[in-house]
Computed example of a mutant assay.
Amino acid sequence: MKNINTTNTTLVNLTPHSITFVDDVGNTVLTVEPSGQIARCSVTREKTGDINGIPVNKSRFGKVENLPEPQEGTIFIVSALTAQAVPERQDVYITDDAVRDDQGRIIGARALAHV
């Protein structure tokens, strides 16, 4: 993959939650709000048993739904599962290097990553 350095790229958040990017000292650099469209993999489940009364399924992930066609100067932020399903897409990214609060909850990310 080639190196990427740009300040003119549009970031489209295809997840259901806000994504906050922070710098090395925890200051917010950018918050990308959800676009209202969620890219997801379709899933089929087959029950294979039970463990202590809890169903156990075999899940199969299929086609990615709600992922727009590539657009010049635009990248799409999606879930890791969705990104793994479309490795040929150079415009699909995930958040990387999670920042957590003192209770372990993710409150931001320091980077983007391409899968």
Rank of each mutant, 00 (worst) to 15 (best):
K58Q: 13
D91M: 04
I75S: 08
G62E: 08
V64R: 12
F21I: 04
D23H: 01
A98V: 14
R110G: 15
G53V: 09
N13W: 01
I19Y: 10
A113R: 06
N57D: 13
R89T: 08
A113T: 10
Y93K: 02
M1C: 11
T10P: 11
I19R: 02
R89W: 05
V12Q: 07
S79R: 13
L14Q: 05
K2C: 05
V43M: 10
D102M: 11
D101N: 14
N5K: 12
S59P: 01
T82W: 04
L30N: 01
G49M: 03
T9C: 15
P55K: 07
Q90K: 13
E88Y: 06
D96W: 15
D101E: 04
S18V: 12
K58A: 09
R89P: 04
T10I: 13
R45V: 15
R40E: 08
V22G: 08
D23W: 04
V56L: 13
D91I: 03
F61C: 08
G49E: 09
L81F: 04
R45E: 15
E69T: 07
T82L: 08
V64N: 10
H17C: 07
V25Q: 14
K2E: 12
E33M: 10
N52P: 07
D97T: 02
L30K: 05
T74D: 02
I94K: 03
I38P: 14
A111P: 03
N27T: 09
C41L: 11
S42W: 08
G53S: 06
A80K: 14
A98P: 14
V29W: 03
P87E: 10
H17A: 15
